[in-house]
Simulated scan of single mutants.
Amino acid sequence: MKGVNTPVSTAVIMPSPILLWRFKVLLFFVWGFSCCKIGWDSVMRMSVDLRDLFLYEAFLYYNPLLLMTMTVWLWGINLWFFSQASVNYAKIFDLDQNHLTHREIWKCATWMTIIVPTSMTAYLYLYSNGEVSLAASQPVLLYCAVAMILVFPFDIFYMSSRYYLLRTLWRILLPLQAISFSDFFLADILTSMAKVFSDLERSVCRMLHRQVATIAWFEADSVCGSHSIAIPLVLVLPYLFRFFQCLRQYKDTREKTTLLNVALLGYSSSANHISSHTCYTDENGFIFG
């Protein structure tokens, strides 16, 4: 009929998921190549005498976050295996219905994989071009951003999962209640990351004392040097957390096997404390503990 407008259906053309995935992979490789190229050129631009010292310092700042990123990737792989084997890990870890799946964990790990090396590349590039103050701000901004995201009080960035992690860490610090499996599991992971906490302590110390992008920390008697008493204390902390967890477990269950764990953890923490005081110096003057 004349005068009647018939609606015209317009189909929205959307790219296929496979095409989008390939495009993301391509962008990821372009980003990775760019970071490697810029980082390599920046390092080669430095003097030979300064290069080794600076790389050691850059490694110290970014190594903890890179290892944490790898941990998140591996945790996502664990969840994927759990889902494939039909393991109800949400019930095991006492998670709510809003817990993260392996895909969401991998999404977080992907962003961490992008942000941390990008910050490291900017650090190398700025320092090699004489922008020392801007270079020094890169690890500081990154560490502050990580801390702010963890405690961000608004319902974004997986708030329930972030606060679940923080509550578990708090229960590990103060085991005043019965030990749950998630408490034990996370504390056990922390014992494997003792060196990460040691590097974190030295990194934060240098940031607080404004020693980033300098070699003031190289002096052994420096407040952030390798002979600092804080290093062995931080190395022992994860073992002490597990030690007190075992004591709490014995108090609740009266199982004598937990006392064996107490003895083993006491020995491990003592050995770690003693070995952390043993330092070696190579031909370039680096101090390793």
Score class of each variant (00 low, 15 high):
A90I: 06
V72M: 03
Y62C: 01
A145C: 06
S269R: 10
G130Y: 09
L19E: 14
F184Q: 04
N272K: 13
T258K: 13
E283N: 06
V12I: 15
V262A: 11
V12K: 13
L237Y: 12
G76W: 02
S276Y: 02
I105C: 11
I229H: 05
S34C: 12
V196Y: 04
V236R: 01
F23E: 11
L55V: 04
E57C: 01
L260G: 00
S119Y: 14
F184I: 02
T191G: 01
C144A: 15
T10R: 11
K2T: 10
H99A: 10
I18V: 15
S128A: 15
L19S: 14
S9D: 11
Q211M: 11
V30L: 15
I231N: 05
R51F: 04
T69M: 04
R45K: 11
V204S: 05
R248Q: 07
V12P: 00
S119A: 15
C205P: 05
L50H: 07
L235Q: 09
L79N: 01
I13L: 15
I274E: 10
R167E: 14
T71W: 10
I229Q: 07
F81V: 08
F33I: 15
I179V: 15
Q249R: 10
G130R: 08
Y62S: 02
W75E: 02
V262P: 00
Q177I: 09
C246N: 08
L60A: 02
L50E: 12
C36L: 15
N63F: 04
S276F: 00
I287H: 08
V212M: 02
L169W: 13
W73E: 05
A194P: 00
Y250N: 03
C144R: 13
T6K: 10
D183E: 09
A58V: 06
V223W: 02
F184H: 06
T258N: 13
T168W: 09
M14P: 00
Y56G: 04
D41K: 08
V262M: 14
G3R: 08
R22W: 11
N88Y: 05
D252G: 00
S182V: 12
P153Q: 09
A187G: 15
S275R: 06
H102T: 05
T281N: 03
F152W: 14
Y143H: 12
H273T: 14
W73I: 12
A85R: 08
I172C: 13
G3H: 11
